[in-house]
Amino acid sequence: MSFNKVDVYIYLKRFDFSENPTPEFKRIQLDKDLEYTKLKQELENLLEIDLSEKKVIKIRNKDGVLIPLGDLQKGNDFDNPFYVEILNIHHTVPLAKNNANLLQDAYLDAIRQKIKSMESRVSQAELLIPQLQWRRQAHMDETVNTLSNRVAFLNRRIDELTPVEWKSKIPETIS
């Protein structure tokens, strides 16, 4: 095994060929440094997936949780294989030519509303940025003024409470 390759152990289920496939155990080697598109293409080549047909590749860990494709590059050991499922893309509801798909229209409208909402929030934020800078500066000025008043008060109190015999030994200004 070379240093830039990693061993990946998988159980492969091909739902694109049959509805109840038997899992096939495989060991494949993947490059650690591949970007996503090249990794997906290499995986399609290794698993002999026909690129002309639309397929879905689902990768699960030992607990059955879906994981991203990039997790394959970390590798695994023989005892903890990944479960890879290959499925055909299919629609559960046939699309009618005359009937509008109301669910799809509602989904698109919801996305449009979200985008409009986000655009209005961004424009409001752009309007508030100069006010926020002004408020921050005013707050800083107020804080500096308050602190200088408190330091002046403490200096006066120290001057008032200092015994007369010590005043000759203390410098004129403490602050």
Rank of each mutant, 00 (worst) to 15 (best):
N98R: 03
L30G: 02
L108V: 06
K167S: 15
Y83R: 09
N80R: 11
P163R: 08
N101F: 12
R157T: 06
K114L: 12
I158H: 03
Q73W: 02
K55G: 02
L87V: 09
K54Y: 00
P163V: 10
G75Y: 05
T22A: 14
L147H: 13
N20M: 10
S2L: 01
R135A: 15
L161W: 08
Q133W: 03
L46N: 03
L47Y: 12
I10K: 01
H139P: 01
D77A: 06
I28G: 02
L46R: 05
Y107W: 08
L132D: 14
L103A: 05
I89L: 00
D16V: 03
Y107S: 08
L127H: 13
L47G: 08
N61A: 04
F15Q: 01
N149C: 11
F153I: 04
T146N: 13
A152P: 01
P23A: 14
N88P: 03
S175N: 06
I111E: 11
R27A: 12
Q133D: 10
E48T: 10
V164F: 11
D63F: 15
R157K: 13
I174N: 06
Y11K: 05
N61M: 04
W166D: 13
L147N: 13
S2T: 02
N20V: 13
Q41D: 05
M118N: 12
L102C: 09
E160T: 09
A152S: 14
K40S: 08
E35Y: 03
Q73T: 09
M140S: 12
G64V: 10
P68T: 05
D33S: 06
L161N: 11
I57K: 02
A152R: 13
Y83C: 07
L46A: 05
M118E: 12
K167A: 14
L43D: 01
L154D: 03
V144P: 01
Y36L: 11
D7G: 06
G75R: 01
D71V: 09
Y36C: 05
V8H: 00
I67C: 00
L69S: 10
R157Y: 09
L30I: 05
S123T: 12
K97N: 13
L102A: 11
T37S: 10
Q124R: 06
T37R: 07
D109C: 04
L147G: 07
K116N: 10
S168A: 14
Q73E: 04
L128V: 03
L47I: 08
S18V: 10
D7I: 09
I49P: 06
V164W: 08
P130V: 00
R27K: 15
P171L: 12
I57D: 03
R112F: 02
A106F: 08
I174Q: 06
R14V: 02
E48I: 04
V164Y: 08
E44G: 00
R156Q: 13
P68K: 09
V151T: 08
Y11C: 02
D77I: 07
I57E: 04
L102Q: 14
Q137E: 15
K26I: 11
D141E: 15
L30E: 03
G75F: 07
L39D: 06
